[in-house]
Design a protein around this nucleic acid. Structure first.
Lengths: 334, 334
DNA sequence: CAGCCTTCCTAGAACGTTCTAGTGGTCGGA
DNA sequence: TCCGACCACTAGAACGTTCTAGGAAGGCTG
């Protein structure tokens, strides 16, 4: 690019083609109101000059932004899949996506602010950590759809997985294999940890195993899982459910180092179906969320809000499903 | 958000505060030219009305976009780390980032087009797959910085790792451990595969091991590594270097299933230092790129181009370093 | 041939901001 | 007392687009 070279504008194209600016605008938008030959001619000139519409000016004038802001966290187990789904859904609806990432050195507040200035029509937040009050304040300004997290506030839409049901599935699977002594490695104070823990407890009770309920303190990292493994090795159960996949891999590693065979001696179930859980090397049985359905729903919901369509339910809860891989099997013979 | 509620503008704040629009603009930008008390007063009114500057209008008027477009690929082994680094560097330079993702169902062309319309001042592309001609065409319109890939074109800036050197490091490390029969699992037609293969071959020659050079067909996925493992099991070398970490994990798994102990019988080196390679469970010795340095450099280069500063070198090659973990060790005793 | 549609096109305002070129007032110095 | 410098502030144009209101030409109907 040579310096000082100005990008061509509608006016340049209009002058070159010998028509008015308004007509070029009509042609570029593909709007009705231009003759076939002129249309052809204008398009040709635009192509020759390398004209690119300026979406800023366009949006500024037309008021409608057709722009959805997405806040995602780098390193989030499945944000890649979610972005893929969101792009698809937005595309189908004729909307654009603008992304703002949360990184270890860029907090949510910054990410929100950036998108607000870009005049997005709505915000889709992937598993935000901000307190409910902050999200509510945000929702005062524009429609907000939160994914993968429960938010009890009437101004915020939520699309999330039925986390309790995810643990029901995990426990049911293990019980069906013959397990009874099933422990749960907890997610401490992380988003959704409480619901998963309660799901585990409910499921155990439902199977008449309330006396065998055993919740091990944990967290969201690999080292949390490894620590839990050390706590379990003294008196190992025959199966363990976990808060997430990362902690499950730490657990797996800790159990194996402790001399246990997985799944021969002990079965392990993760949560999230993270991309690494599919690696042949890890091959983790895990609870998967229906990413595509959830993405589509989030976009739809955002657009309904923008349009002001009345929406019956603020919160939509999607059932998860179990992906059975190699870390679960029947309990060892006594 | 109630429908029909217009976002407050400079004019609203000005009217409410009883001053001119221009003055509010001055205050909001923190520009000199306003009295302390008025400034205070205007800020207070702006806060009360919930005023948010409209970056579109701002950029439209001021011409300067201070906006860098970043095209990244979802599922790219280390794009998360790169984004983190880029945000930091852009922030330090007073620039904003706008992201456009390439997903399995959204190609690069689409990603480029989106950013062009946003009037970015420059583009930073993370390992683009587009042919050089396309990148060159893009560079006609605005400064383009390509990361993680060599592009031989005078209009395109490149910031990449010395991939050949990465394999030198890997081979040197293995030779120092005592290995001589070292094979390389190739990356087929992927970006950088050729240079890594040549790096391997050079290093082998440098150690006088040219007769032991052995390149196994591979690819970028886990299954490619697993296939390579099957090819190697008949006559296993004592060490293997690979095109990337994903293929290395497939290889690891295949070798172990074939009855070999890693690193007892055979050592494996990956490439990329992907996040999963750090998992205790995988614990892969691998070649790491200096992400922070590269991100900073890419942003700096982009800004220099925008400013029209003459830049000496189009291409900057950063040396990688080796991260030694648990998949390499001395060769087995004979 | 008047009247009325259509079709194709244009002028000019508007979007929310920044920028340029001021205006008017105060103050210090000669 | 007057001049100039400086400070606080303002009017209005400009950025590149879309939108509203309309105009000119041509064809159809009665």
């Amino acid at each position: 690019m040579r310096a000082g070279e100005r990008r061509p504008t509608l006016a340049d194209v209009a002058a070159e083609a010998g028509v008015s600016v308004a007509l070029v605008s009509i042609v570029m938008r593909g709007a009705p109101g231009a003759g076939a030959t002129t249309r052809q001619q204008v398009l040709e000139v635009a192509r020759r000059l390398g004209y690119q519409p300026d979406s800023r000016a366009r949006l500024l004038r037309s008021g409608e932004s057709r722009l959805l802001g997405v806040v995602f966290a780098v390193r989030h187990p499945f944000h890649d899949d979610v972005l893929t789904g969101l792009y698809d859904a937005a595309d189908r609806a004729g909307y654009e996506l603008t992304l703002s990432a949360v990184t270890p050195r860029r907090d949510e507040r910054t990410a929100f602010a950036g998108l607000l200035q870009d005049r997005c029509a709505a915000l889709i937040l992937l598993g935000p950590l901000a307190p409910t009050a902050d999200l509510a304040a945000l929702a005062e300004r524009l429609p907000v759809v939160v994914m993968f997290r429960a938010v009890r506030h009437r101004a915020v839409d939520v699309v999330r997985t039925d986390d309790a049901r995810g643990l029901h599935l995990a426990v049911d699977h293990l019980v069906a294999l013959g397990h009874r002594r099933i422990a749960h490695v907890d997610g401490a104070r992380w988003v959704a940890a409480g619901e998963r823990r309660r799901g585990y407890q409910d499921a155990m009770r439902r199977h008449g195993l309330e006396d065998l309920i055993r919740v091990i303190p944990g967290g969201s990292g690999e080292e949390d899982g490894a620590r839990a493994a050390r706590l379990l090795l003294d008196d190992p159960p025959t199966a363990v459910t976990t808060f997430n996949d990362l902690s499950a891999t730490g657990l797996l590693d800790g159990l194996r180092r402790g001399g246990l065979d997985v799944p021969g001696d002990i079965s392990v179930v993760g949560y999230d179906d993270s991309s690494f859980s599919r690696l042949a090397h890890i091959d983790l049985t895990t609870v998967a969320q229906d990413i595509d359905a959830m993405s589509t729903l989030a976009v739809t919901r955002a657009i309904e809000r923008i349009a002001g369509t009345p929406v019956a339910h603020r919160e939509t809860v999607i059932p998860p499903h179990l992906v059975v891989r190699g870390t679960t099997g029947p309990p060892p013979m006594r």
